[in-house]
Simulated scan of single mutants.
Amino acid sequence: MEYFAGLDVSMEETHVCVVDRNGAVVYETKAISSARLIAEALEGAPPCTRVVFETGRMAPMLFHGLTELGVPIVCIESRQAYQALKTLTTHKTDRNDARGLAQLARTGFYKAVHVKSLPAHAVRALIIARKKLVGQRVTLENQIRGLAVVFGVRLPRGLSPAFVDEVVRMSDGITGLAGAMRGLVAARDAVLGAVAAIDADMKRLVRASEACRRLMTIPGVGQITALAFTAAVDDPARFRRSRDLGAYLGLVPRRYQSGEIDYVGSISKVGDKRMRSLLYEAANVMLTRYKGALKLKDWALAIARRSTMRKARIALARRLAIIMHAMLRHGTEFRPA
């Protein structure tokens, strides 16, 4: 007899349900949400052919931890599971969700997803932290600029050397304003120091990664884009075709077809939003700043002449994703010709 398990995971505890081939519940329990304790809870049930749980914040830690412990764990798409669970249960409880996930494991009616490695998540955390810090820097500079405008002073660019000097000069001697400006400038300097430290870490990671160095041979692709792409792809072999990267990153048109209706809209924008933005920026740099001869650039400019520059950038971003995946998969460098 085959047995299947479903795990409904929360931050504190996980509900475990095991069913047999006929769908009858044979074992239920709860465990603290850690890989070791969940594996111990499953030892009290018959050996399971498949154990299913949904994507979420704790998915990487639990998936890799349970895999190392020999549990046949499968991570499934939470949006698909949500729609299926609504049809299986009337009342949404953690216990019923675990039962529903066990039934999905039994029937195979689910879409398994790839769980990225923990090093890939670490690189992604570094990129997200840098983006957040840069946003805080811009917010602080805009606040300083807004306070200065009240006193009729227009400050230079935030990253120019004269920015801080001009702030100190214009606020000197004004009670209240000087203290406010000193506090904001000190916070800005701290954020700039944190960004510089992250940039140094990124530079070390790029130097240690042959894949990133190959990707950076593409005009417009810098160290952040290269790191983000290798972390997003994680394992190039999991994509059967390089052209699948366009759909994975939400860079293909959304389509709706039903009967006589056949509608093709804008891009789907699913997947990693940050990676999609970086590819769009790389495409823009290639089209507007790169001065060398490049067939890829000529191809995108031909699209711009037929349509719009925005659509040309999106098409080029999709093509860049395909080329970058092929380079990772085959270990090749970019050849402009």
Rank of each mutant, 00 (worst) to 15 (best):
R137L: 09
E141L: 09
A125S: 15
R21G: 00
R310P: 02
G44P: 00
F239D: 09
D244V: 03
A237R: 14
P336Y: 12
P47R: 14
R50M: 03
N22F: 12
L85F: 05
G193C: 09
A148Y: 06
T29K: 10
A315S: 13
V52A: 05
A122Y: 03
R57C: 12
A196W: 03
L62F: 03
N96G: 02
E2N: 15
F109M: 13
H91N: 13
A302R: 15
I198K: 04
Y82D: 14
E141P: 00
A187P: 03
G100N: 07
M181S: 06
L249G: 02
R238P: 06
A232W: 04
G179K: 09
L328V: 03
P236D: 09
V74T: 13
Q223A: 14
R238Y: 04
V270S: 12
P161Y: 11
A196P: 02
G108N: 00
S242N: 14
V150T: 14
T14I: 04
F53E: 10
A312I: 05
T93R: 06
I127G: 05
A231V: 06
G100E: 09
N142M: 04
R310H: 13
M58R: 11
F151C: 10
Q103E: 15
F163W: 07
S117T: 15
M309T: 12
D262M: 10
R329T: 06
P72H: 12
F334K: 04
G100Q: 08
C48I: 03
A237F: 07
A41T: 03
P72V: 08
K131Y: 10
A125N: 13
G176K: 09
D199N: 11
G173M: 07
A112M: 02
V164N: 02
E166K: 14
I314T: 13
P219M: 08
F4M: 06
Q143W: 08
R188S: 15
T308E: 02
L133Y: 13
I32Q: 15
H114R: 11
R306S: 07
D189W: 05
L62C: 01
G158N: 00
